[in-house]
Computed example of a mutant assay.
Amino acid sequence: MTASIDDAPFLDITKPDFSMRSQEVSDARERSWFARTPYGVAVLRYAEVAALIRDPRLRQGSYAWPAHNNASGSWADWWLRIMLNREGADHIRLRKLANPAFAPKLVKVLRPKFQELANELIDKFAAKGRCEFVREFSEPYATRVICLLLDADQNDWEYLVDLAMQMGMALGTTYEQDQDEINEATDKMFDYCRKVVSDVRARGLDDGFIASLIRANEAGEEALSEEELYDMIVLAIFGGIDTTRNQIGLGMDTFIKHPDQWALLGDRPELARAAVEEIMRVRPTVTWVTRETLEDLDYQGITIPGGTTVHMFSQAACSDPRAFDNPGFDITLERKNHFGFGLGPHHCIGHFIARGDMTEAMALLARRMKNPRYENEPKFLRDSGNTGPLTMPVVFDPEA
C-alpha cells in the first residue's frame, strides 16, 4: 500500500508514446490505486474511480485548460461558460433546463432516421468490399446525426465537421499557437447556430431538439439566456461529432481484433446495445475524466492538496481485475458501469442520443460488413486523453 503521494508510481502521460493500455499502466495499477503524473494525480482502480468521481470535494477540472495554455478568445470564453464547467446551483439550473431536449423520447423518434442514414452510407461501399472507415462512415455518420438533431441541411455536414475539428485543436498540446484558427472556427460555429435557431423560430416550434432548447430560453426567470442557448447548441455539435466519430471507429477496431464477437453481433443484432457498452468499457474515446480538488482531500490515508488535478483513468479502471473477473472483450456478459460518459453531477447529458445512434450503427455494420480486417495499417491519435482513429482502411466480404 502506497503511504504517501511521493511513494506512488510515476506515469509520464506527456510522452508521445505513452499508452493508457500499456503494461506500464497495468503495473502501476497493481502497485497502487493511484499514480503521480506531470499534471497531478491519476486514479487507476475501479472502486476508487467510482467513489471519487462522485465526491463533492472535487469539481470538474477541465475549466482550467485555457489558463494552463495561456490562451484567450472566443473558444476560451465559451469553454468557461458551458454547463460542463459550471458547478453547484448554476450547473443544476442549466441541466434542468436542457434535460427535455436530450430526453430518451427523442432517440425513439430519431431511431428510424439513424438506421436510414447508416444504410445509406454502407450502400456506397458494401458491394466493393472495402472502405476508408473514418472518412466513409464514422465521420459522416456522426456529423449527419447532428444535422438530424438540429433539423439542418444534411449537406452542411462537411462544413460542421471541419469547424468541429478546428475547434478541437483547443484540446491538444498546440492550443496556444493555434488559437487564432480555433477562435475563428468558434465564431463561425456560433454564426451557424444563430441561423439554425432563427430558422426554427421562423418555422414554428415543434418537438425537436432545437425547439426544446428554445422553450428553455423562454421558461421564465431562470430560463436559458440567449447566450446560454447558443452555448448549449455549440456544445452539442462539438461534443457529438468528435466523440461519436471516435467511439464508432474504436468500436470497429476492437471488433476487427475480435472477429468471433463481430460474427456474433451480426447474427444477434439485439446485442448491439450491450456491444456499445462493452466497447466503451474496453476502448473508450475519453480515456480519463478530469477533476480538481476543492480542498485538501484525505482519502485512504493520503492527503491530496486542494487545487490538485485528479485524472480518473477510466480506461485502466474498467479493465481492473479487482472489479472484473473476466476483463476481456465479451458482448454477452453483464458488466459494472463504465465511465465513458462520466458519473455523478457531470454525467454526459447527451448519453441517450450517443447510445442510440451508436447502437443502430453497430447493428447494421455487423449485419452488412462480414469478416472485416485491415487492408493497411490504421493510424490513431495518441492513446491517452481523448483518442480515436485517424484512418482505417478496412476490407470485408463484398455484399452480394
Rank of each mutant, 00 (worst) to 15 (best):
T37W: 00
R135Q: 14
Q315D: 13
A354S: 15
V286P: 01
I122D: 09
L44M: 11
W262K: 03
E278G: 06
Y299I: 06
D77V: 07
R45V: 15
L160S: 01
T287F: 00
Q247G: 12
T244H: 12
M83K: 09
V145S: 10
M362Q: 10
R245S: 14
L52D: 09
A101S: 02
N246M: 09
G342E: 06
L160R: 01
D7V: 12
I302T: 10
Q247I: 01
F114N: 14
D187Q: 11
M20P: 00
L264Y: 03
G249E: 00
I182K: 00
R194H: 06
E116R: 06
D90F: 02
L297P: 05
L171G: 12
I353R: 05
P378L: 06
E295R: 10
T391K: 15
A118Y: 11
L250D: 05
G204N: 03
A164R: 00
A202K: 07
S62V: 14
T290F: 00
G220E: 02
M392G: 07
M20D: 08
N326V: 04
L205G: 07
L213D: 10
V197P: 12
L365I: 14
T186C: 02
V41I: 15
D12F: 13
A98H: 04
G220W: 06
L343H: 13
P140G: 02
P393F: 04
D27C: 03
V109C: 10
V394Y: 11
G40T: 07
D123E: 13
E227S: 10
R45K: 12
N119G: 13
A101L: 01
S212G: 14
A118C: 04
K105R: 15
K195F: 05
A263D: 10
G239D: 15
T285Y: 05
I214N: 00
E221H: 08
M1Q: 02
A274L: 11
A76N: 04
D320L: 14
Q166W: 01
I182Y: 03
R194N: 10
V109Y: 14
N119V: 02
R368A: 07
D267A: 14
G266Y: 04
C147T: 10
A366M: 10
G340K: 09
M312V: 06
L297E: 11
F339Y: 10
L52A: 03
Y299C: 08
M20V: 13
A216S: 15
V394R: 13
E222N: 15
A51Q: 13
A101G: 01
R322D: 11
M169R: 05
G328W: 11
S4I: 04
M165Q: 13
P112N: 11
D55G: 08
Q23D: 15
E158M: 09
D12T: 07
I233N: 01
H258E: 12
S22R: 08
E176C: 08
R59F: 04
D187G: 03
R86D: 04
I122M: 09
Q23R: 07
A101D: 03
A64C: 08
G350H: 06
